[in-house]
Every structure is written in structure tokens, then in C-alpha cells.
Write a protein that binds this DNA or RNA. Structure first.
Lengths: 132, 132
DNA sequence: ACACTTTTTTAGAATGGTTATAAACTAGAC
DNA sequence: GTCTAGTTTATAACCATTCTAAAAAAGTGT
């Protein structure tokens, strides 16, 4: 299993559940956006196997903390995650309620001129809302 | 009352509650960020007067729809609103969990190169996360 | 001022995503 | 195998938000 090492290196025990979640998240052809609920359904269908919701929450948060997933800043009743952890941005189609990736090169350089004493910039995220 | 006209022009009846909420939101010296809970407390303290939570939710959403308030896209368990409706962005201090305004001129022009067929750009919002 | 209609307010219940709990289980170390 | 700390699980708890239905207020016409 190729994820055993990855988990161990992060200080996470490679349990059956975590390895299965890794498969679903990181073996996909393309990166994707998901909510916890989306992921639970995907797991059930794809692995024909139920993992407790609590475990899915725990694991997703653990992976996010380790930098294997990113949360997408958007106002919604659910939290959206992204398996694409590269520096990039998002379109949000308000009508379809769908997220679309925007490569960094689609946005051009962003230069933050204001500085805050004693603080470093951790990330710069752009959300472009779309209407018809 | 200066807000009666404003409300009427928006097709909203100028009720006592809506006028009071207008006062708290729009008579402030500076624009500010708030959650519904913040606002409820501010109303209670500032006006010495309780307005039902349901009314506050209704009113804030009505004002947002009319463009008198903006939602701030950020991942939090609560929804953040902004009385500053000008085109601008935000720092988010992860440690203090505090939002700071970023004027448009602090960010420089953002040019979205990718186009989506049949969709118009409604807004471009930048969130800059800060760490120590 | 009054009657009538529509909108608004309200308290409290319901909803639903997320987190906490505590008991059963598992991985890793010796 | 035994032990310990970490993990999983079902379920309960939490809490921001929305719904509900009844009372109150606003607007309109008379």
C-alpha cells in the first residue's frame, strides 16, 4: 500500500479506514471538490463499505491539518474540501451551486501591498462568483 | 428618520425593528464585520431593546439581498457579514480569528483570464490568511 | 377613525451539519 | 502474547439557522 508510508510519516497510524479514505481521495484521476456527505457516499459506493461518519470527519480534518486537503472558503451550510492542494482559486457558479477550479495562471499575480505587523501571509485565496 | 425612505424604496416596510437595525448597522462611525449573534448583542446593549432572533435573521438576509450588506466568504461555523459594501477584500488572522479590511488599492488589479460560457462574473473576493 | 388585507414579528420547535462521548477495537512496542 | 496509546464507532449533544403558526403592525380604502 502506497499510503502507509505517507500516513506514518505524518504521525498517523495507517488504519484500514484511513487507507481506504486515501484511496478514494487520492487515487482519483482528477482532483475534486467534496463535502463530508459527498465523501461518505463515495466511500459507500466505491468501496462497498461503510465507514462511520465520525471517522470520516476525523480523518478529513487530520488530512487537512497535514496539508493533504484544503478547505475552500465559501459561504455554504456545508464545508467544502478540495483534493487539489496546489496554489489555485475557484469560480463559484451561484445558480448551479458548483465550484470550478481556476489555475493560478488564470488569475495572474496578486500582490498584497498592505502589511500587518508581526503577521505572515499564509495563503491568498480568490473566489469568483458567477451569475448568468 | 433617514432610513424610512431607503426601506420603502427597497419594497421593505419601515418597521420599528428594521429602523433600529438600520441604526445599529449604518449609523456606526466605521463599517464593521459581524455575526448574527454579534448583532443581537449590539442591539440589546446599544438600544436597550430586544429584537427576536428570527427578525434579525430575516432583516439581515433582506438587507443582504438588497445589497446593503455583504456576506464574507470564509470558513467558520458562523456566517460573517460586512457593513462595508464597497469593493474590497479581507485579511483573516487565523490566530485571533479576526477579519481586517483590505482596500481594493491594497491588492492591486485582479484579472480573471478564464471565461465560462454563458456566465458573467458577479464578484471577485480575495481572502488572505495570516499566521504569526 | 374604522374595517380589511398583507406583511412582519415573535417564541418556540424543528432541522441538519458538526462535534463530543465513552466503550469497543486495533496498531505498534516490548 | 501483553500492554498502552491511538483509533473507530454509534449515538447523543450542540448550536447556528430555518420553519411554523399565531399575534401584531403597516398600508389601503372608505
Amino acid at each position: 500500500m502506497k499510503y502507509i508510508e505517507k500516513l506514518r510519516n505524518s504521525g498517523l497510524r495507517p488504519t484500514k479506514q484511513r487507507l481506504q479514505i486515501c484511496e478514494v481521495l487520492f487515487d482519483a484521476e482528477k482532483t475534486f471538490h467534496f463535502t463530508i456527505n459527498d465523501l461518505a457516499n463515495k466511500i459507500k459506493k466505491q468501496l462497498n463499505n461503510k465507514i462511520s461518519l465520525a471517522t470520516i470527519y476525523n480523518t478529513v480534518h487530520a488530512f487537512e491539518k497535514k496539508g493533504y486537503l484544503k478547505q475552500i472558503p465559501i459561504n455554504s451550510n456545508q464545508t467544502y474540501f478540495d483534493t487539489n492542494i496546489s496554489d489555485h482559486h475557484h469560480f463559484y457558479d451561484l445558480k448551479e451551486e458548483k465550484l470550478i477550479d481556476l489555475e493560478n495562471s488564470d488569475v495572474g499575480p496578486i500582490n498584497i501591498l498592505k502589511k500587518i505587523e508581526g503577521k505572515k501571509i499564509k495563503s491568498v485565496e480568490v473566489l469568483v462568483k458567477l451569475e448568468d
